[in-house]
Computed example of a mutant assay.
Amino acid sequence: MSWGAVIVRVVVGGLFVGHGLQKLNGSFNGPGLEGTEKMMESLEMEPAKTNALAVSLAETGAGAAIVAGAATPLAAGGLIASMVTAIRKVHAKNGVWNSNGGFEYNAVLIAVLTALAAEGPGKASFDALFGKARWGAKGALTALALGIGGSIAAVEMGRRTAEKKSAESGGDLGGTAEG
């Protein structure tokens, strides 16, 4: 699967780089960091600025690592975390199918990244230079654990920070209190 892995790495990793750059600096008609921060606020992913920068850099950097076939399970884990969080915060409520705003596409990306972490980036990769052209089940489980764990941590941090922010403002998020 060596050349097949290269094709998957370049397409999937390259698209993640583009997606990350959309968030980071507005490339490819993206929202840029300011728009991404607003999205994070709307999703209660506080602190929004930190989460916006984190997801932008994670998608860009991990996408580039996937293209290069470098630290594949770690890179896949970072991207899986982004996709799991997108499912949890945006798509799950819409069901499976992408046509309804569901998580179909995210699930496919998670499956591809998990398979890539298991089968490895192939012989034409940085990992192969260090004897890791194939990672096996350990690579897949590492990527999934990092992805799911990263999502849980990000969403929980967002929830707790949003609650703290609300409590500090007296629970008033812009409304008026009438007695």
Rank of each mutant, 00 (worst) to 15 (best):
F103T: 15
G171K: 00
V90W: 01
N51T: 10
A107N: 04
N106G: 07
A52W: 00
K49S: 12
V108H: 01
G158A: 15
N106H: 14
G63S: 10
W97N: 15
L146K: 01
K89V: 14
R134T: 15
S42V: 10
L113Y: 11
L173E: 14
A75Y: 00
R88Q: 14
A62D: 11
I152M: 03
A177V: 13
A133L: 03
G78R: 03
A133C: 03
A107Q: 10
E41F: 11
T50F: 13
V108D: 06
L146W: 00
A128W: 02
F130E: 02
K93V: 15
T142Y: 02
A107S: 14
L109F: 04
G170R: 04
A140V: 01
N94E: 13
D127H: 01
K123N: 12
A115S: 14
K138N: 11
M83C: 10
A140T: 07
S166D: 03
A115C: 09
P121M: 09
A111C: 12
V108G: 12
W135M: 04
G179T: 12
A107V: 13
G175F: 07
E46F: 15
G150L: 06
I80W: 00
A62M: 12
T60C: 13
A64I: 12
V108A: 14
E168Y: 05
A145G: 07
G150M: 03
V96R: 05
N94R: 08
V55G: 03
G171Y: 01
A92I: 15
F103E: 07
S56P: 09
G101I: 10
A48K: 02
M157F: 08
S151F: 03
A48C: 10
G136Y: 00
S125E: 03
G131W: 00
G101E: 05
A177M: 09
G149A: 10
A86L: 09
G61Y: 02
G61P: 06
T72Y: 01
E156G: 07
A117Q: 04
M157C: 07
A137S: 08
A128G: 02
G120Y: 05
A75Q: 04
A137G: 06
E41G: 12
F126Q: 03
E163R: 10
G171C: 08
S151H: 05
A145V: 12
V90G: 00
S166V: 08
K165P: 07
A62K: 00
S99N: 11
L173V: 14
G170I: 04
A154T: 13
V112S: 11
A143N: 02
T72P: 04
A145E: 01
A145S: 09
V108S: 11
S42K: 10
A76D: 10
